[in-house]
Design a protein around this nucleic acid. Sequence first.
RNA 1: CGGGGCGUAGCGCAGCCCGGUAGCGCACCGGACUGGGGGUCCGGUGGUCGCAGGUUCAAAUCCUGUCGCCCCGACCA
Length: 562
Amino acid sequence: MRLSKSLVPTLREDPADAEAISHKLMLRAGLVRQLAAGIYVWLPLGQRVLDRINAIIREEMNAIGGQEMTMPVLHPAEIWRDSGRWDAIGPEMFRLKDRNDRDMCLAMTHEEVIAWLAAREIRSYRDLPQIWYQIQTKERDEARPRSGVLRTREFVMKDSYTLDPDVAALDRSYAAHEAAYRKIFDRCGLTYRVVQSDTGMMGGLGAHEFMAPSAAGEDEIAICGGCGYAANVELARGVPEAPVFPSWTREEVATPNARTIAEVAAFLKIDPRLTIKSLLFVAPKAGRVLVLVRGDHNLHERKLARALGEEARPGHPEEVLQHLNAPVGSVGPVGARVPILADEALREGTYVVGANREGFHLRGVVPGRDFQARFVDLHAVAAGEACGHCGKALEVERVIEIGNIFKLGTKYSEGLNAKYLDESGQERPIVMGSYGIGPARIAATAIEQGADADGIVWPASIAPFDVHIVLVSLRDQAQIAAAESIYAACRAAGLQALLDDRDERPGVKFKDADLLGVPVRVTVGNALAKEGVVEVKERRAPRREQRVAPGAVVEAIRALAR
RNA sequence: CGGGGCGUAGCGCAGCCCGGUAGCGCACCGGACUGGGGGUCCGGUGGUCGCAGGUUCAAAUCCUGUCGCCCCGACCA
């Protein structure tokens, strides 16, 4: 590709709207442009990166027997009603009506279509297993699109779906996907971990996520250096260190104007770990619940939802006053006339809690003796807590979710009547799995993990080009001739080549070359006239460089790649 | 949905508090010089100041409403 004739709109300055490194660089390097919140145009260079990522995905999916297909983006409501998700999903689904006033929606994902198709085409155990996949656009009206292409409302996703006769076969399909995913992310040059993840409110038989460490990530995982335990913090259990409990006798103490844990602890001159945080939640079915975590801990609302079996919302201050007869800052479990859910860290010990009386707390409260509660894991795991398996300290790391694998089970096959006849002629539901990868997230993650102060540093496997040829001066006929011959030679050798043949000053060209991050740069400049050589230099530190005759460039590039 | 911030030329920003000719840098166009890390000089093009109302002799500036975008949180089956 010739830069002089291409749309590669590089930006000298950071765009005002971008925060994440990958977001800034994808805009500056001319990979993408934003059309609206969470909706992006992929420009030619960005498209090339996506194409290479998708090619890798296709190879590895085909290698485990995956069959690619194309599915509709526009769906009838009917199949979503059959699975129960038409009503279960809220405003995140784009909904519309056709000219005959029929309910339609835009595809957020394709379990329903797969199950619909399986219901029609799969009859016998002889038809199983199957792996079907697609690389297609999905639409989700995200509450908050953010971080460039990391979280968008319209995005391309590789989704595959497995159809198996039973759970044992599902386990094999699942393992095949995990192995394929490792190959895909390895080939894309990413650093990542595989962690246990939440199966969510919709159930499922198990799930893992592929998580790439990055400051731009939206998720956190807990990892153990000792035994290798790794899980999303939505799920991760840590054992916090217990404080030394004083031998308090139970008594009411005045705590004027002390409402927050920090204020109460400071006023009583005690460790915040000796206090209990009491939060009123309201759930649709369970009703009001008082939720307790240790003073220094934060409630993880996802864990609460799992414990309750439904989503709960924090109670309003008026509700707290009405049901507990105390303002928010003085609420506690003793004498509370609502069910109590307490974090496991509170099983042992003696604590300070709100007295349900404004301006007072109770000191010396013993869970189990002074109030009854159901104990479950509720607190968000923090770095330094002990691993539940081996006792070593856990680390907490910010990550980007680049892929997930999920054992669905029979939820969708039952809803959409996808059944088969087994060897004994018995009708049974197909057991499904679903497996996603976000190609745009792979691109953004590669930038997050590889970029330096000068710009993008692409992994060679997914770079938009293999070689970036900088023709320094258009006024030197010898340079032009050499650059053209190198460009032709690279292409003949099967290398994707970008030729910077713009009439720009050298500094501009070098800056742009660094910004674009193509793995190898070939500079055709002064050294040609002086010494008859061009420079072949790698983008990634330590930026090794070779000076070779124009005819030896392809060989030199190959040598650098080794 | 809650909290915060921002909409002024293609991009990055100043001007707004205190109403009175719409500015700067980069980019772009023409010219000259220059030519290995975003070069210099000269001359230009380009803006209904997000939109709609209102106040005023006069609104980018004050008031009301509205739309859009970003960040934090909630949400992400």
